[in-house]
């Protein structure tokens, strides 16, 4: 089986004036179809930079990204149709990932209206597709005609998931997708996400600072620190026998609860 994503020697340096910051340094990894890969690290470790480069939303300073054997980096936008239809995002905060002035139906239909995605998918009944995905994430059918602010945080994240599923992607990138939610709704949204990934056979890139959540979701993970991959392997092993001191620190940082005697 060929790899879905092949990332080789990816480096991204941001330059502001005379200062330059290395956000990502010489990162290589492969993602197999159907894999669930956790990308773990503290804020500023380069997690978001990595997935943005993989989705062709930013240009790497050096290194390459291939998706399905085709190059992503350095390719003009109009030739990225194969990627735009196949890779979709769910972001951290549904308050800022949903345009407050658009109806939910239009938010969810937006990927279907993109000329690149339309070229990939062919003719499609947009309304029916919107109704399908809203139903799939457990939102009422009349949600399409309402505005995002009429929904709770958990429901808004369901809207964001529905939007990501609309073009029937192969890959879902969840960038801290449950971190901003209340603990009470976090489990619901996480379970929904996992059920959908299972049902639709999606490949999942799960970006999180929270190793406990990653263990729950992903069999494998890479650990990023300061823009470099410091450790990778089965999540269970990262937990029980971390090799890198940074991983050990992340594991130790997970709050544990013991019954008080």
């Amino acid at each position: 089986m060929t790899a879905l994503f092949e990332v080789h020697g990816l480096t991204r340096v941001y330059t502001t004036g005379r200062r330059s910051v290395v956000a990502l340094e010489d990162v290589s990894l492969t993602v197999e179809p159907g894999q669930r890969l956790g990308i773990v690290g503290e804020s500023g470790s380069g997690k978001s930079t990595l997935v943005r480069l993989m989705a062709g939303l930013d240009r790497p300073t050096s290194g390459t990204v291939h998706f399905g054997g085709r190059p992503v980096s350095g390719v003009p936008e109009r030739q990225l149709g194969f990627l735009r239809a196949s890779v979709q995002f769910v972001f951290q905060d549904p308050r800022s990932s949903l345009n407050p002035r658009m109806r939910v139906g239009d938010v969810v239909a937006e990927p279907l209206r993109s000329p690149l995605v339309r070229r990939e998918l062919g003719a499609l009944d947009q309304r029916r597709r919107v109704a399908e995905v809203l139903d799939a994430v457990g939102l009422p059918a009349d949600a399409a005609s309402r505005y995002p602010h009429e929904f709770s945080g958990g429901q808004r994240q369901r809207i964001a998931i529905a939007r990501a599923l609309a073009p029937s992607p192969q890959v879902l990138i969840a960038d801290e997708a449950v971190s901003a939610l209340d603990v009470s709704v976090r489990a619901h949204v996480l379970n929904l996400l996992m059920a959908l990934v299972d049902d639709l056979g999606l490949t999942l890139l799960f970006v999180s600072h929270d190793l406990a959540v990653v263990r729950h979701v992903c069999p494998d993970a890479v650990v990023l620190q300061g823009g470099r991959i410091v450790e990778r392997g089965p999540t269970q092993r990262l937990f029980t026998a971390p090799e890198h001191p940074y991983t050990a620190r992340l594991v130790a940082a997970i709050p544990t609860f013991r019954a008080r005697s």
């Binding site: 939303l57 149709g81 735009r84 979709q88 990932s97 345009n99 209206r113 993109s114 000329p115 690149l116």
Partner: peptide
Amino acid sequence: SDYVLAARASGTPVPVIAVR
């Protein structure tokens, strides 16, 4: 904002992002 990033991730053209 993330909603513009989401629009770009779907290949929404720049003029459409400006208007929408």
